[in-house]
Write a protein that binds this DNA or RNA. Structure first.
Length: 206
DNA sequence: CATAGGATCGCCT
DNA sequence: GGCGATCCTATGT
């Protein structure tokens, strides 16, 4: 029997202070949603770390606090979902303690449960990479929308993260620069994007 | 109130 | 791999 089966990841994991390390450790964990009795899930294969007020790429850079970024200041373990380009719902996990607005963007998962439901939501016939590779399409497949903003990551909320498999080890992790943040000056060069090396469900973004 | 720009995607070549 | 769609958010007057 696998000792990692269906262990829900709890707040003590998210409320640590090293968001970059948390982004690494989220690789291999399983993002789950259940709405109207329909379970969908995927193994996390791509993440990005956003280091709060010090990070020019972060929405909370310099302590910026608006209606949108308000949930980033909550204690770790809640969802931050915001709309990008007016259409795409991007899912982040808030980390660290209250008033320190760190977050990890989940960019891609390898589909596990609820394949039929995910295909239907994406209006696709067969599983292929574009089903869940990319933060916008992943949210679409898992029915993640901004109405989940601020929800705690628990099964009762309908959205949570599980440990099902052995942890991903360092040599399996590929590191790079974050996607779509050219405006972030020198912080655009930080190596804070993490993927599972060679995994075909990683987004094609360069 | 007006405006600029974005943590993207999918279609086209 | 290049480019346009699309509309919300943030900011400034």
């Amino acid at each position: 029997m696998n000792k990692y089966r269906n262990q829900v990841v709890t707040n003590d994991f998210f409320r640590r202070d090293d968001v970059v390390q948390i982004a690494r450790e989220l690789l291999g964990k399983v993002l789950c949603t259940r709405f109207d009795g329909v379970l969908t899930s995927g193994r996390i294969v791509e993440t990005e770390a956003y280091n709060g007020v010090f990070d020019q790429a972060c929405h909370a850079y310099g302590g910026r606090r608006t209606n949108r970024t308000d949930v980033m200041y909550q204690p770790g373990g809640v969802a931050y979902v915001y709309l990008c380009y007016g259409i795409h719902h991007l899912f982040n996990v808030i980390t660290n303690i209250e008033d320190i607005p760190d977050a990890v963007l989940i960019r891609a998962v390898e589909p596990l449960d609820g394949m039929d439901a995910m295909l239907q939501r994406r209006e696709m016939q067969r599983p292929e990479r574009r089903l869940t590779a990319g933060p916008g399409v992943m949210s679409r497949a898992l029915s993640i929308t901004t109405n989940l903003n601020g929800r705690p990551l628990t099964p009762e909320s309908g959205i949570w993260i599980e440990q099902r498999f052995p942890p991903v080890v360092e040599k399996e992790i590929e590191t790079g620069t974050r996607v779509g943040i050219g405006y972030a000056g020198e912080d655009a060069q930080l190596p804070w994007r993490f993927c599972i090396k060679g995994n075909k469900w990683v987004s094609p973004a360069k």
